[in-house]
């Protein structure tokens, strides 16, 4: 498709672009550079020597990995059921998915908190994982379902014609073709879980802080350079993951 030059907006309006980007990035950049200048790498060293921070990081990674894995698996099942098979629970699932997308995180967290209390389920990292999965699931389903609908169904028919049973169609044709979407869904789920503060705050047991929650606690007691160093580090990791996510974004359009 030939690239058509589109008429640009007036200069004044275009100026908003750099202004907004500046407003978004300036604090971040300042923080990162600030954590080096004057404070040198000392704070980073102190950071790494703090055992509680390292534990928090570990917990974040563990929770994110579990949540991402489980929600990706559930999302694959859900997307397949919604698009492919005659499934009685289709409508309830669509409705519940829509509801969870529109629910403010706060309400989700508090309702899960109430539920866990009723079940007498003690708050721990397990409850956090459960909460994260519930939070992340609709997004994962969206990503995978989008790719499924744009996939050419004839390929699956071809597989059946050549002798594949339903599970084989799934494992040899459908899933391999869904790979980019599965990776995207996993990465997004991981990111959302890793970065999550609100849900974790309410559904976690005491002393089990994940990294964002730990950061929050530190921030509440003052803005030491150590905190800024931690933030900067997390920021750089996040950015790396985001770039990964965008690079391996599932391509739009049907594939033959």
């Amino acid at each position: 498709m030939t690239e058509r030059i589109r008429p640009k907006a007036p200069r004044a309006l275009q100026m908003i672009l750099p202004v907004v980007l500046l407003a978004l990035y300036l604090p971040l950049v300042v923080m990162i550079t600030g954590s080096f200048k004057g404070w040198t790498l000392d704070w980073y060293i102190e950071l790494f020597q703090d055992p509680t921070l390292f534990q928090a990081l570990l917990r974040s990674v563990m929770v994110a990995t579990s949540s991402a894995t489980l929600s990706t698996v559930l999302a694959i099942s859900a997307a397949l059921a919604l698009e492919k098979f005659v499934f009685a629970g289709r409508w309830p699932m669509r409705i519940l998915s829509t509801i969870s997308l529109m629910l403010p995180e706060l309400v989700l967290s508090l309702s899960l908190l109430s539920w866990f209390s009723v079940l007498h389920w003690e708050l721990s990292l397990a409850t956090v994982v459960v909460a994260h999965i519930t939070l992340v699931l609709p997004f994962a389903i969206l990503i995978i379902a989008a790719r499924l609908t744009s996939m050419d169904a004839a390929v699956e028919d071809a597989a059946r014609d050549l002798g594949a049973g339903e599970w084989e169609v799934l494992s040899r044709v459908t899933l391999p073709l869904l790979k980019p979407a599965i990776i995207s869904a996993f990465t997004l789920s991981f990111l959302l879980s890793f970065d999550d503060f609100l849900v974790t705050y309410y559904t976690n047991g005491a002393g089990n802080d994940t990294l964002p929650v730990k950061l929050y606690a530190l921030m509440k007691s003052g803005l030491s350079p150590k905190v800024q160093a931690l933030s900067s580090l997390m920021l750089l990791v996040s950015v790396g993951l985001v770039i990964l996510l965008i690079k391996y974004r599932p391509k739009e359009g049907p594939e033959s």
């Binding site: 050419d152 004839a154 028919d157 071809a158 059946r160 014609d161 002798g163 040899r172 594939e255 033959s256």
Partner: peptide
């Protein structure tokens, strides 16, 4: 079901498996 019938189909838009090579496509069945 389709897989148990001794017939094979050539599809309108070919429906070749994009993630497999030509040889793997042919060898699928």
């Amino acid at each position: 079901p389709a897989r148990l019938r001794p017939f094979n189909m050539v599809f309108q838009k070919y429906a070749l498996f994009p993630h497999l090579s030509v040889a793997e496509n042919v060898a699928f069945g």
